[in-house]
Design a binder for these strands. Structure first.
Length: 465
RNA sequence: GCUCCCUUCGUCUAGCGGCCCAGGACACCGCCCUCUCAAGGCGGGAACACGAGUUCGAACCUCGUAGGGAGCGCCA
């Protein structure tokens, strides 16, 4: 039987970090085992579901490259099917109508609590075989087994046993005719042939009741894997207060999609001491059974480090495509300056994100307007600054080709000409070219400016020296 | 309240009874390299929640305790 996994978000907001990791693990498990990955939108909560959220989830998955093989399926389009299965259960005597009001149920719960038990429905209509009637309180409830226990082997949590005495007769069909979550997932997972249910561990508590429904329907129970949560840096539940929660926010903040993927795959899973995984390696090595049991915290520092690793090791041309996106996002036209791929090479050791890179790259795409006063005082107002700049200018002007190596040699020649070390030429030049004391290596800094602009900036600096 | 789950350096983790007075990575500190800043190299500090068992031997097995989390809806 071919493996089929699914990611089933409810469209009530953007794709967040936790959801993205769940989707990644489902996707990897399917790819690793040569199976299929299905996307299903659980939109039965009509109050909170929006089309915008559906689009946001699709966008997030698309950016991460988590392609689905089937779907998206929408639960709201499957209402007839849930009703049909419910009727089946009713006919088989495995479900029944109940008509208690919210107040009555509330009273039952309070009574159970008072006895030191869980708040739940007491099953009073269970054996009454009440007929269908048009009543605003009408719900269809599941006849949960009253004795014995439910057992399932969770691929990450291990064997979990649950006494049926702890479970009550859950609602299958609400009074508004919509199925409840626990019923709809089971019907969907059966219909869609899902073999491996991989989801957040906030669902472990639902699993025993779902297993009972599988049994009542005579369907094969899939294997389950419940993933631990991702916590914020402070160990608290991830929320908007912790900054970026939406996956797309990470794109805006300058992260590469596969850096995020790499970070996410290592959060709760590992393969020996390996830290860097290409997507192909993830697919080859991932096994959901190796996922850790405990929750983990999100650490932006490590994500940033990983991002820089990819910035440094990926093909500059590929990084440049993402880099240009960020240049534009910051209002810079890439055509007004050097080749973005060259800029990537110059800045990838100095920036952890593409956003940071784009900010640092502005000097080459916009005219130099300001000088840092401290930089001017320290490196331009010296006895050697002017001769150094003049010597460098002469060398640059005479260069037959404008290349980093040639520029490097020219600067060395200029230093030799005035009898000083590299530093005495490099620093004034750096201030001349960027207005600051910090930039990539001086030859690259000069190169990226282009000869005409470099000479212009040097002339302006000489005038100030 | 009840049920279920979890617990190795600050963080992510390796470890699946002897290879561990616990390894790697991020972060941090120091040194080296150096035209600035980085990157890189080398080195350093830093953890098995606690208590009982089982065993010749426990981070690994069992049971408690403590702490944390999830759920107990006609929400998903």
């Amino acid at each position: 039987m071919t493996v089929r996994t699914r990611f089933a978000p409810s469209p009530t907001g953007y794709l967040h970090i936790g959801g993205a990791r769940t989707a990644l693990y489902c996707w990897l498990e399917a790819r690793h085992r040569g199976g299929e990955f299905i996307l299903r939108i659980e939109d039965t909560d009509r109050e909170r579901s929006t089309d915008a959220a559906v689009q946001a989830i699709l966008d997030g998955m698309n950016w991460l490259g988590l392609s689905h093989d089937e779907g998206p399926y929408y639960q709201t389009l499957r209402m007839d099917r849930y009703q049909a299965v419910a009727d089946e259960l009713l006919k088989a005597g495995k479900a029944y109508y109940a008509y208690e009001s919210k107040e009555e149920i509330e009273t039952m719960r309070a009574a159970a609590m008072a006895k030191g038990e869980k708040p739940r429905y007491d099953g009073r209509a269970r054996d009454q075989n009440l007929p269908y009637r048009n009543d605003p309180n009408r719900v269809l409830r599941f006849k949960n087994p009253t004795s014995g226990s439910v057992v399932f082997d969770d691929k990450v949590k291990g064997r979990i046993e649950w006494s049926n005495a702890e479970l009550d007769d859950l609602v299958l069909i609400r009074s508004d005719g919509f199925p409840t979550y626990n019923f709809a997932v089971v019907v969907d997972d059966i219909d869609m042939g899902i073999t491996d249910v991989i989801r957040g561990d906030d669902h472990v508590n639902n699993t025993p009741r779902q297993v009972n429904i599988y049994h009542a329907l005579g369907a094969a129970v899939p294997s389950f894997a419940h993933l631990p949560m991702i916590l914020g840096p402070d160990g608290q539940k991830l929320s908007k207060r912790h900054g970026a929660v939406s996956v797309m926010q990470y794109r805006d903040d300058g992260f590469l999609p596969h850096a995020l993927l790499n970070y996410l795959v290592r959060l709760g899973w590992s393969h020996g001491d390996q830290e860097i995984f290409s997507v192909a390696q993830m697919i080859e090595l991932f096994d959901v059974a190796d996922v850790n049991k405990a929750a983990s915290r999100f650490d932006l520092e490590k994500l940033s480090w990983l991002n820089q690793q990819y910035l440094k090791n990926d093909d500059p041309r590929e990084v440049a495509a993402h880099f240009e996106w960020h240049l534009r996002a910051q209002g810079i036209d890439p055509r007004t300056g050097p080749d973005p791929a060259d800029v990537v090479v110059a800045l990838r050791d100095r920036a952890r994100t593409l956003k940071e890179m784009a900010e640092k790259a502005k000097v080459w795409y916009e005219p130099l307007r300001e000088y840092d006063e401290a930089a001017v005082a320290k490196h331009l107002k010296t006895a050697t600054a002017k001769p150094a700049l003049e010597a460098a200018r002469a060398q640059f002007d005479a260069l037959s080709e404008w290349k980093v190596e040639a520029i490097h040699a020219a600067i060395e020649a200029a230093a030799a000409a005035i009898g000083e070390g590299m530093g005495k030429v490099a620093q004034p030049l750096r201030v001349a070219l960027t207005g600051t004391q910090v930039s990539p290596s001086i030859d690259q800094t000069v190169y990226l400016a282009g000869r005409d602009e470099a000479l212009r900036r040097i002339d302006a600096a000489i005038a100030r020296a």
